[in-house]
């Protein structure tokens, strides 16, 4: 039971990374109908930016304000820098291709992904980088006889908090309504006076920012990062997005957390499951799509003929 509970916490933690990355996919897809293949690499970029921040500045902050401020600083730094990167990516790779249709957009996204991945490799090198151990908190929390690393708990609550804020923005505010309207029917939204460029800017700022945040947390959680990890993470997060129902904010969260839990439990409880877990993930995805083509929380839309 204790093992199960620990696995569950691990699963939810990993799942919350997926969920944060999935949010970016989902928002961009909702508004642009584009699978943003560069999103996984923006996640990697965030991870490296956080790493650089820790190496460069955290000791200074830690000395003066304590370990946790360094961690928060790194997350905030990656969040902001990645938001800038997201805007840049949209300007350079996507905006000039919007009119050309969906397929060129996909290729441009793939091109951006390859570019980012190799740019990261060129800047930080092809080898693994390790988040400095002395700058990442290792304290544990004792709870009901369980020992939970405090970092995990903080990561978990931070991601859940961010997701709640996101949910609030998208579902409760007027601007969120504009975003949802754009996702449903772009042309109509324009006619109603919604500034589409602002909506696009919003999703391309916040999506990568959340991804970058997840990147730093992922780095602290696993400690080592590599330039090419974005592909795999992106693929997983995108799976989570589809699992929950693409273009649907709560769906991305549910899908992400669910995927994390399923994966961790598969790896933990099936002998040799670790090697097969990605395979199972995709198998589950395919089965979900066969029986519920619009995802778990996706609405059933009858195509108008």
């Amino acid at each position: 039971m204790r093992v199960f509970f620990e696995q569950l916490v691990n699963g939810v933690t990993v799942g919350s990374f997926y969920a944060l990355v999935a949010l970016g996919y989902s928002m961009v897809y909702g508004v642009m109908k584009l699978i943003n293949f560069a999103h996984g690499d923006l996640f990697t970029l965030g991870s490296y930016l956080g790493y650089t921040f820790l190496v460069w500045r955290a000791a200074w902050i830690t000395e003066r304000a304590g370990l946790w401020w360094g961690v928060l600083g790194a997350i905030l730094f990656a969040f902001l820098a990645n938001a800038g990167a997201g805007i840049l990516v949209e300007r350079v790779a996507y905006r000039p291709v919007y009119r050309a249709g969906r397929l060129p957009l996909v290729v441009s996204a793939l091109g951006m992904s390859i570019f980012l991945q190799n740019a990261i490799m060129a800047i930080w090198g092809p080898r693994f980088q390790v988040y400095p151990g002395d700058l990442v908190p290792t304290a544990s929390l004792r709870f009901l006889g369980l020992s939970l690393p405090l970092l995990k708990v903080v990561i978990l609550f931070l991601s859940l908090g961010v997701m709640l804020v996101m949910y609030w923005i998208v579902e409760k505010t007027e601007f969120g309504a504009a975003v949802r309207a754009t996702a449903l029917d772009r042309e109509m939204a324009t006619l109603l006076g919604i500034d589409i460029q602002r909506v696009i800017l919003f999703v391309f700022t916040l999506g990568p920012a959340l991804g970058g945040m997840a990147g730093v947390m992922n780095g602290m959680y696993y400690r080592s990062i590599q330039f090419s990890m974005g592909w795999n993470y992106g693929l997983k997060a995108f799976t989570a997005t589809i699992l929950g129902g693409i273009g649907n904010i709560p769906g991305a969260m549910v899908g992400g957390v669910l995927l994390g839990v399923i994966e961790t439990l598969l790896a933990g409880y099936i002998p040799g499951g670790g090697a097969w877990k990605d395979g199972f993930t995709f198998l589950i995805l395919i089965l979900v799509l066969i029986f519920r083509p619009t995802g778990i929380l996706g609405e059933k839309v009858a195509e108008k003929v």
Partner: peptide
């Protein structure tokens, strides 16, 4: 060497911007 894929990614984007078809 290590920059060639970087250029490749760039080339993909540039092609799609100027010749989307």
């Amino acid at each position: 060497a290590s920059f060639r894929l970087l250029f490749f990614g760039l080339a993909l984007m540039v092609t799609m911007i100027f010749r989307p078809g």
